[in-house]
């Protein structure tokens, strides 16, 4: 991570209004989906966002993809604030940032041939001539392990793993700098997951593309990511290089999350930290540290003041009063 980061997120915040009434709606509260998060992803690097449902990882992805507008804060790709872009710069942004979604059964149009699906980013953004498009599609299809002859088939003629390869090809064809991977393997069968994970890792090396990986399966993030950020109720509670985080997790939530993960062998006995209760509503998040009502180590100050992120080791940030 020497040069300027490909993606930079600063103080990013998204609050959704909770409204009442049909015609005369009034705002009765705010869902604090994402609340002041910051991170960056270097070229050719993978940052994983992990957390349970409702922690804001998908909203973060949408903010980066310009599918939602932030309440506050900035998303910078390649040095440009993506939410102020327009015209030609916006077209370029759309080629530079791509996404692969969880479910390849619903993310690919059933009425388009593979060739059209894969070429779409090039066609829409007017990036290449029709001859070039044909070549690029063939090149990318073979890069993801499909035969160029398969370009004339429809998505329903493929299995789940192959469909996800098509989705990856479509994301890669415009030579993006950043691909947002939203649970890219969790809809696939176990024996197919490894194929796709290996493919993504290989393509990252080959094309030097950055990944923002959103996953709830911790072992997947350990395999694929260089850096992992743990989110809880709209905030990043801990962020560290992958190995560091997995060998010495610090935040009580990270520890609980790791201890709840299923073991890879029956003899691996984890210290079981079973959290009581469930994630509180993001409409009225708890005061102070948002984790304090479920935290086994909560002290008095945890319910009063919000902990600010501290750097404990190189690149290892944690937001907790214990440190």
């Amino acid at each position: 991570m020497d040069a300027a980061p490909v993606l930079r997120v600063d103080e990013l915040t998204k609050h959704f209004p909770v409204t009442e009434g049909l015609l005369w709606t009034k705002v009765v509260g705010w869902v604090k989906a994402v609340d002041g998060i910051a991170f960056s992803v270097g070229q050719g690097q993978t940052l994983a966002l992990v957390g349970e449902s409702g922690c804001g990882k998908t909203t973060t992805a949408k903010l980066i993809l310009r599918l939602e507008r932030p309440t506050a804060g900035t998303v910078t790709v390649d040095g440009e604030d993506v939410h102020t872009l327009g015209g030609e710069a916006l077209k370029q942004y759309r080629a530079k940032v791509q996404a692969v979604f969880q479910d390849p059964w619903s993310s690919l149009s059933p009425r388009m041939r593979v060739r059209e699906i894969v070429a779409e980013p090039l066609v829409i953004n007017g990036l290449a001539s029709s001859h070039e498009i044909k070549e690029r599609v063939a090149e990318i299809l073979s890069a993801v392990g499909l035969r160029p002859q398969q370009a004339d088939l429809y998505p329903h003629e493929f299995s789940g793993g192959q469909r996800q390869r098509i989705a990856v090809a479509s994301a890669l064809v415009s030579r993006p700098k950043l691909i947002v991977l939203d649970e890219p393997v969790s809809a696939l069968d176990v024996s197919i997951r490894a194929q796709i994970m290996n493919l993504l890792v290989d393509l990252q090396r080959q094309y030097d593309v950055s990944f923002l990986l959103i996953a709830h399966h911790l072992a997947t993030t350990r395999y694929m990511a260089h850096e992992v950020a743990v989110m809880y109720l709209g905030q990043i509670v801990e962020k560290a290089p992958t190995k560091e985080l997995f060998t010495s997790p610090l935040h009580p939530y990270t520890k609980a999350l790791f201890s709840a993960a299923l073991p890879a062998h029956p003899d691996i006995a984890r210290e079981e930290i079973i959290l009581s209760g469930e994630v509180p509503s993001p409409i009225n998040p708890p005061s102070g540290c948002r984790f304090h009502p479920r935290c086994p180590f909560a002290m008095r100050q945890c319910s009063e003041t919000e902990p600010s992120p501290k750097e404990i080791a190189a690149g290892h940030m944690v937001a907790c009063h214990l440190y």
């Binding site: 299995s159 793993g161 024996s191 994970m197 350990r222 190995k243 997995f246």
Partner: peptide
């Protein structure tokens, strides 16, 4: 072919083909 949370895996074995 399953990644582990407890150790670094250099590369996952992947089963070719489908059932």
């Amino acid at each position: 072919s399953v990644p582990s949370m407890d150790e670094d895996v250099a590369r996952l074995y992947s089963i070719a083909g489908q059932p």
